[in-house]
Amino acid sequence: MLQPRLLLRRSQQTTPCKYLSIRQNVTRTYATITEPVNTDPTPMLAAAGFAPPAKAEKSSATFAMRTYKPRTPGVRHLKRPINDHLWKGRPFLPLTFSKKGHGKGGRNNSGRVTIRHRGGGHKRRIRTVDFTRMTPGKHTVERIEHDPGRSAHIALLNEEATGRKSYIVAAEGMRAGDVVESYRAGIPKDLLDSMGGVVDPGVLAAKTAWRGNCLPLHMIPIGTFIYCVGSAKERGAVFCRSAGTHAVVISKEDKGSQNRFVQVRLQSGEIRKVSRDACATIGTASNPHFQHRQLGKAGRKRWLNIRPTVRGLAMNAADHPHGGGRGKSKGNVNPVSPWGLPAKGGYKTRHKRNPNKWVVTARERNHGKRRVK
């Protein structure tokens, strides 16, 4: 059995402690990263209206990674995020189905390789995740699970009214026992009555904009962190579904009857207009330290259905435009793909001369025609 220990990625302190039932010393070490940190995605709302929250300042966030004593070369460089809250058993099988076609290896129905570097991999079961979340009412989080088909974790929900179970993408900080709700079907009657029969935007946001709740975008305060963002009224979530991703509500159009869109800044920095009735979940997608993991050995890549990628420079001339030659040489050619397409940006496809300049030759002048050189 592997002996776990928590190892410092870049500094600072070590503290001996005990880890679960393994009676060995465990080293806790911490890494400090600098990134925008928002301690609570739920904005600070006033009782009589809401205002955009203050912009998150850059601060230090410290997290620990789990490493293992190097009993074998394969675990010497293995680093994983610490997710001790995950469910240790099997998934809820009625919401899963077996993934077929593992042996295709990136091939289409005619047997040709259409996606390179695919093949092998462990058997998986697909988790049926609810991205639309149209069912109203309170749902209790039973447990947080690992999903082999995505980088973020998933949460198993139990509908309190009917006992029906469903999977959703878990928010960072969500744990078993939390209660979440969807407001896509409208504002519940009891919530409307508590506001005196009139919708008060500040009170409504204070009672609904909580982590894990799914709301239409027009009900979410400006500046709130959201994930699992939809693009149309009756469509499920399509944006910000990966681990640690989130979007921010930037502005809402206020043009009377033309108020149909909300501007959202996605994780890439793109500002996109989406429907005001599109869905969004409050918070940030779970497992934010997924990007810092290190697989430790090539075999773990093979378990993930990823085959090796060979450099074109290491191939023969018959296999790649960069191949062949004596020594390390790509033949003085620009970087291209195996099929000769430019592989990097900034590739000049036009001549240096002005392509928009009209040049008339004597022969064309006689025929009254022009051509571009």
Rank of each mutant, 00 (worst) to 15 (best):
T72P: 04
L7N: 14
N287K: 03
E270F: 10
R184D: 02
G327M: 07
G173Y: 02
A152S: 08
D277N: 03
I250D: 14
K233E: 06
N356Q: 13
R127T: 09
L86A: 07
M1I: 15
A64F: 00
K99G: 00
S110Q: 15
V199Y: 07
T32Q: 10
V179N: 11
S242C: 11
G340M: 02
K69I: 04
L8I: 14
P94M: 08
G120Q: 12
G177R: 07
R307Y: 01
Q3F: 13
G120K: 09
W358K: 07
L341I: 10
D193F: 10
A285P: 02
L341C: 11
C228L: 12
P41C: 00
R125K: 11
G173L: 02
K88R: 12
N38G: 03
T309L: 12
K189L: 14
Q263G: 13
Q13P: 08
N354I: 01
K344H: 13
R175G: 10
T14C: 12
G103F: 11
R76L: 00
L45I: 14
R10E: 13
R80E: 04
H289S: 03
K301G: 07
H122A: 14
T72A: 02
T114Y: 09
G345E: 13
A278Q: 00
P342L: 04
R265F: 01
Y167A: 10
C17R: 15
L204E: 06
Q3L: 15
P321G: 03
K79A: 03
G244C: 02
P43S: 02
W358E: 13
S110T: 15
T62V: 07
E57G: 00
N334L: 13
A298D: 09
I126G: 00
N332R: 10
V310L: 13
K255A: 15
T128G: 11
I271Y: 00
H146F: 09
K357L: 08
P70D: 04
V113T: 11
K330R: 13
N108G: 06
A51Y: 02
R28C: 15
V336W: 04
L20I: 12
G340V: 03
